[in-house]
């Protein structure tokens, strides 16, 4: 009643929260798993892999910036539909999205990941890490693929993924938040709902702590993405200024 999270939140409240977050995730997930099912398992022909590898670095960066930006727009819509998010100040909404939207894109990537072929759905087909060679960030790409693989291995349901995404987005320890306490309450409630759903699904007790460990991996991926972007921008400032999506620059440009 006073907005406090668990233990006061009842099972019915947690079920309701899980339902709402799950529905928001479903409505904003960009691709339904079923849509991709027919192409899953298909390997990209070598000629197409070569085509990506031969692209000039600037063009490949631009393509990836566009794809990331598209995915982030869906994450913004997801955030808007999370209970309580739009009641936060606009400053805090922006702080949470700036820090967390790419993290959610990385989480969502595991839905579009083909574990057998180590490939992710990109530009209309399943692509392995070699497709991204022209970016000149092999280490970061390898880490992103490793992250997707490790998250896939937990075999989370869509509802669990939705709640984990909301939990990450509502991180109360982001710098520059005005109302940390309110974000903390929302995050705590989301964590309780996630815990509740994991229990309901008879998941191992360790899954929640596994997921908490993944949070630091996500942060590391995002800060490495920012470093790579800075390095790229230092060499190609005009490409970024003129050809990168404005939203991408707003989020990562500084």
């Amino acid at each position: 009643s006073n907005g406090e999270a668990s233990p006061t939140a009842s099972m019915a409240e947690l079920d309701h929260l899980a339902h709402v977050v799950s529905k928001s995730h479903h409505e904003t997930c960009q691709y339904l798993k079923e849509e991709l099912q027919p192409t899953r398992g298909e390997r990209l022909p070598q000629a197409e892999v070569d085509g990506y590898q031969r692209k000039p670095r600037e063009l490949m960066w631009q393509l990836c910036a566009v794809k990331i930006t598209e995915a982030i727009q869906y994450v913004v819509e997801f955030a808007k539909r999370i209970d309580g998010f739009m009641e936060l100040s606009q400053n805090d909404q922006i702080v949470l999205l700036k820090a967390g939207s790419l993290e959610v894109v990385f989480i969502r990537m595991c839905r579009l990941f083909d574990e057998q072929n180590n490939a992710v759905y990109f530009d209309g087909k399943f692509a392995g890490p070699d497709v991204f060679k022209a970016l000149g960030c092999d280490d970061l790409i390898a880490s992103v693929f490793d992250f997707a693989k490790s998250l896939c291995s937990l075999q989370l349901t869509e509802e669990e993924l939705a709640l984990f995404s909301a939990f990450v987005l509502l991180s109360a320890d982001r710098s520059w938040l005005q109302d940390k306490l309110q974000v903390e309450k929302l995050q705590q409630k989301t964590q309780s709902a996630l815990q509740h759903v994991l229990q309901k699904n008879q998941r191992d007790d360790g899954v929640l702590s596994e997921l908490r460990c993944r949070v630091s991996a996500l942060r590391s991926l995002c800060s490495r993405h920012t470093e790579k972007l800075s390095a790229f921008r230092a060499v190609h400032p005009d490409i970024v200024r003129m050809h990168f999506p404005p939203l991408y620059k707003e989020l990562f440009g500084a």
Partner: peptide, 20 residues
Amino acid sequence: KEKHKILHQLLQNSASPVDL
């Protein structure tokens, strides 16, 4: 707000440019 113009707009719009 000026610095985050697009994000601001996306948050304000009830329907965003994304075709959901």
